[in-house]
Design a protein around this nucleic acid. Sequence first.
DNA 1: CCAAAAGTGTTCAGCTTACACCCATGA
DNA 2: TCATGGGTGTAAGCTGAACACTTTTGG
Lengths: 232, 232
Amino acid sequence: MKNGYARHTSFHVAVDCIIFGYDGIHLKILLVKRSFEPEKGKWSLVGGFLKDEESLDDAAERVLFELTGLSDLYLEQLYAYGDVQRDSGGRVISVAYFTLINTEVFNGLSSTKYGGKWHDIHEVPDLIFDHGTMVTKALRRLRRRAKTQPIGFELLPEKFTIPQLLNLYEAIYDREFDKRNFRKKILTLNVLEKLTEKDMKNSRKGAFYYKFNLDKYNQLIINGFVFDILSN
Amino acid sequence: MKNGYARHTSFHVAVDCIIFGYDGIHLKILLVKRSFEPEKGKWSLVGGFLKDEESLDDAAERVLFELTGLSDLYLEQLYAYGDVQRDSGGRVISVAYFTLINTEVFNGLSSTKYGGKWHDIHEVPDLIFDHGTMVTKALRRLRRRAKTQPIGFELLPEKFTIPQLLNLYEAIYDREFDKRNFRKKILTLNVLEKLTEKDMKNSRKGAFYYKFNLDKYNQLIINGFVFDILSN
DNA sequence: CCAAAAGTGTTCAGCTTACACCCATGA
DNA sequence: TCATGGGTGTAAGCTGAACACTTTTGG
């Protein structure tokens, strides 16, 4: 494509991804050791430079695919970072994205070939540049989303039990919820489908599996519905 | 600054600003007729290219200052747009910002020397590129913000009456609110300071002026408070 | 039969909503 | 004195929050 704006300065543009995962107990993020200078060897978000013929979203998808082999993940743009001195290797505009990886896939990835490592959200090491800021913002965004959208389901396997879902919400918000109120609230939403099968791994009695019914959810959204778990 | 990333592609980066204003009756946005090709003469958001030694925020501030002569405006980053074909003049990554201009200043600007023109939010003309999408997103963001932050005050003069504030909220949300409940809710927040002076312009009885008390507001924020006007 | 997690209902408080009349003033 | 917008209070319904015991089953 010819570019009529050639007299203006050009900039390197990158994407950085905050990858949230859930191992069934704790909320985690996936970090890598940076493989090139500057700051080589330090912990970093997964990132990469934008290429000619790809959109920002494409770039984020590509970067995620290169690291994890996964596509079709939940992917949401977080914020664009553009401070002049934010990257000590040169001027780079970075657009941060966040994504969610569910437990099953998560376990397959526990040791990724690219040196990715999962870190508990409470034990995030010092990160290069402004990546720490990005993580903080991503966590806030995740909490906001989980309040009003069924985003939490992205972090769970297709079939999950109510206690598992409760546990996930407790991990995301780092607090406890009353299980009776939680169950009541989530079930009144009418977006969960109870299966006949039980999970017998976590208790003697067993807990019924549920799955998320996207059709019902979309129906609610169309009718101007707000999905509001929480408060209690 | 030397740049160790030189082997990667560079891109033009721009900022575009959605400028909301309030004339005392309607919610408006400020648009300009584009002064260069392509799409010269069409309605457009105010924008400009990012320069070497400025951050994205700096660029947005500069663009706003160049158009309006104003600085220290409320300014919030909205979203980064990066589709390959979004700009027919060449590949440009655009970071959108939105800002709010209060009535008094607004009136001084009704006819800006740069050909800016205020458009009622209900009568936004076709805009170039993806600017229409940006406006839609900005309006959603404004509505979200106005719910939980005292952002609406940015659109009013320093002294304002409760009926004026009500009117503004009705303009933002494009619906009516019950004036008794609105007054009750806003006053229980304890962030408004009643003045002894009355506005006699809009009624015979006159309406008391209030002003926003930022100290009280900050105090509430620190204590984990959520500013929630609305619902009714 | 016991340990351990799953599952279930009710009550109270506070907030949201709906709603109608009097007040002050300038013309 | 009257027209106009400003200002006020209350009752009903709903939602959120707190809270304790029974059920199931494998070991």
